[in-house]
Amino acid sequence: MPRVGRKLRKWTARILDLPQDVVLDLPRITMIAGLQLTVENHRGVLHFSPQSLRLAMERGELEVTGNDLVIRTIGGEEVFVEGQITGVLLRPK
């Protein structure tokens, strides 16, 4: 997304009081304790093992760490992870 366009969108979101994830295509992470995690607006799986799941995002990376991680469902836009989740780490680029 071009720089000017992104700035314009950010400005619109602020003026109209819209949620940022809707306007800017940012990932939205919903977590229920350490059991379930839903990530919307991801950009693909970078790495998956029972201990960690790394997802690409618009800008940067998201790493979910834990034990016995299982991807319950995966689609083009969202991932639903279950297991003992111990950490969620954001690595902005």
């Binding site: 970078l46 991807i71 319950r72």
Partner: peptide, 20 residues
């Protein structure tokens, strides 16, 4: 595994219960 998962989701196939 990662290449497969990305390819699968890009193709519109929806796998479930992905685990080791």
């Amino acid at each position: 595994a990662e290449a497969l998962l990305n390819g699968v989701t890009a193709a519109g196939i929806r796998p479930w219960d992905i685990a080791y």
